[in-house]
C-alpha cells in the first residue's frame, strides 16, 4: 500500500546539515495498524510527512498503491492527499468554524455535493460520538473531543490511510485509551490502514500490528509488536521499553531478570504466586505495567536470589506460566517460544 524506497531527507541550514531521514526502506500493508516509535528528534514525524508529501524527500521514492508520489503533479497530489487522512498532536482544528463545519471542510475543498456534505458529516459525528457538539466551537471542547473531531474530519473523504502524528501525546491516559480504541475500531470496521507515530510504548502495545523503531533518522528495528516487544534488539527499543534505566545490565553482585507481560490475564497474581511456589524472596526493582482490557502489558525488573537452585526454580515457574523473561540482555528462547 505504502512503500518507501531508499528515502532520505536532508535539512540544510546556514551552517549545518541535518539528516532527518536516512535511507529508509519500508512497506506498510493495506489494513494494518503500523506504529513508528522513537524518541523526540528521531525523524519519525518527518518520515510520516513523506507519506502525503508534506515533506519532499531529498532522494528516494515513495509509492502509494504502486504510484510514485514523488513524480505526481501538484493537482494529482491533492487528489491523493484526499485519500490520506491525517491527525495531529495539537489537533489543528479551524478555530473559527463549528465542529460540523470543521468536519465538512475536506468535503468542501473536494467540491462534494452540498447535501452530501451535511449527511456525511453527521454520520462521522455519530461515529466519533459527538452528536451533541455539532454547533460547538473547538475552544468549547476538551482535548479528547477535539481529537475526535479531528478524526471525523480526517475520515470525511473516505481515506484509505489515516496518519496519526503523536495523536494522543497531548491527552491524559484515560482519554488516550479511548482515542486509541476509536482508532482501532475505525481500522477494524472501515478497513482504514493506520500509521501511528508515538514515543510511548503503550500506544504501540494497545493498537499496532507491526512497529518500526526509529532513531537518528534510521529504522533500527521492524517487526510485529510482539517480536519487537519481547525480544528487543536495538538499544533504542530497550530504552523505549524501560525508560527509567535500561536495567538489563547485570553487575557481579546482583542478578536481574526482566519479566515481560504480554497480554496475560491481569487478574493472576503472578509475582505472589512466584514467591509462594518457589519459596523465594523477590525484590521488585521497577515496574511499568498496565491493565488494558483485563490483560497485563508491560515490564517488571526483579532481582534474583543468590541461590542458584532458587533461580532455576523461578525460571521454571515463569516458563510454566508462559511468561517471557530475559536476563542481562540475553533472551531466553524457551520462554519466548511459549508465548509466541
Amino acid at each position: 500500500m505504502i512503500r518507501f524506497e531508499n528515502v532520505s531527507k536532508k535539512f540544510v541550514s546556514k551552517d549545518n546539515e541535518t539528516i532527518a531521514v536516512n535511507n529508509v526502506n519500508l512497506t506498510i500493508h493495506k489494513g494494518e495498524v503500523f506504529g513508528i516509535i522513537g524518541f523526540s528528534g528521531a525523524g519519525k514525524s518527518t518520515l510520516v510527512r513523506h507519506i502525503n508529501l508534506l515533506e519532499h524527500p531529498t532522494s528516494g521514492k515513495i509509492y502509494f498503491d504502486d504510484v510514485n508520489l514523488t513524480q505526481a503533479s501538484e493537482r494529482e497530489l491533492r487528489k491523493y492527499r484526499q485519500r490520506i487522512g491525517m491527525i495531529f498532536q495539537q489537533f489543528n482544528l479551524l478555530s473559527q468554524r463549528t465542529v460540523i463545519d470543521n468536519i465538512m471542510y475536506p468535503l468542501e475543498i473536494a467540491k462534494a455535493d452540498k447535501k452530501e456534505r451535511g449527511k456525511r458529516a453527521d454520520e462521522l459525528l455519530a461515529l466519533v460520538g459527538l452528536e451533541d457538539k455539532r454547533k460547538a466551537y473547538p475552544s468549547q471542547l476538551s482535548g479528547g473531543q477535539k481529537q475526535r473531531v479531528a478524526i471525523a474530519r480526517a475520515l470525511a473523504t473516505n481515506p484509505d490511510v489515516l496518519l496519526c502524528d503523536e495523536a494522543t501525546s497531548a491527552l491524559d491516559p484515560i482519554t488516550t485509551r479511548s482515542i486509541l480504541a476509536l482508532l482501532k475500531e475505525i481500522n477494524e470496521k472501515l478497513g482504514v490502514t493506520i500509521v501511528v507515530i508515538t514515543h510511548e510504548m503503550k500506544v504501540v502495545e494497545q493498537i499496532c500490528d507491526r512497529v518500526a523503531v526509529m532513531n537518528a533518522g534510521v529504522i533500527e528495528e521492524i517487526g510485529t509488536v510482539k517480536d519487537v516487544f519481547l525480544n528487543p534488539k536495538s538499544e533504542t527499543t530497550k530504552k523505549l521499553i524501560l525508560p527509567e534505566d535500561n536495567g538489563l545490565k547485570t553487575d557481579d553482585s546482583r542478578r536481574i531478570l526482566r519479566i515481560a507481560f504480554d497480554g496475560q490475564s491481569a487478574f493472576l497474581p503472578v509475582i505472589s504466586s512466584l514467591t509462594i511456589e518457589c519459596n523465594a524472596m523477590i525484590n521488585i526493582l521497577g515496574a511499568n505495567t498496565e491493565n488494558i482490557g483485563g490483560k497485563a502489558y508491560g515490564q517488571m525488573l526483579i532481582e534474583l536470589p543468590k541461590d542458584a537452585d532458587k533461580e532455576r526454580q523461578i525460571k521454571k515457574y515463569l516458563d510454566s506460566q508462559g511468561i517471557y523473561y530475559e536476563e542481562g540482555g540475553k533472551s531466553h528462547e524457551q520462554g519466548y517460544d511459549r508465548t509466541a
Binding site: R81, Q82, M86, Q90, N92, L93, S95, Y105, I109
Partner: peptide, 13 residues
C-alpha cells in the same frame, strides 16, 4: 497557527 495550515494542506487544499 502553522499546524492548521499544514492540516489544510494534508487534506488536499
Amino acid at each position: 497557527d502553522s499546524g492548521v495550515i499544514e492540516a489544510a494542506k494534508a487534506m488536499g487544499s
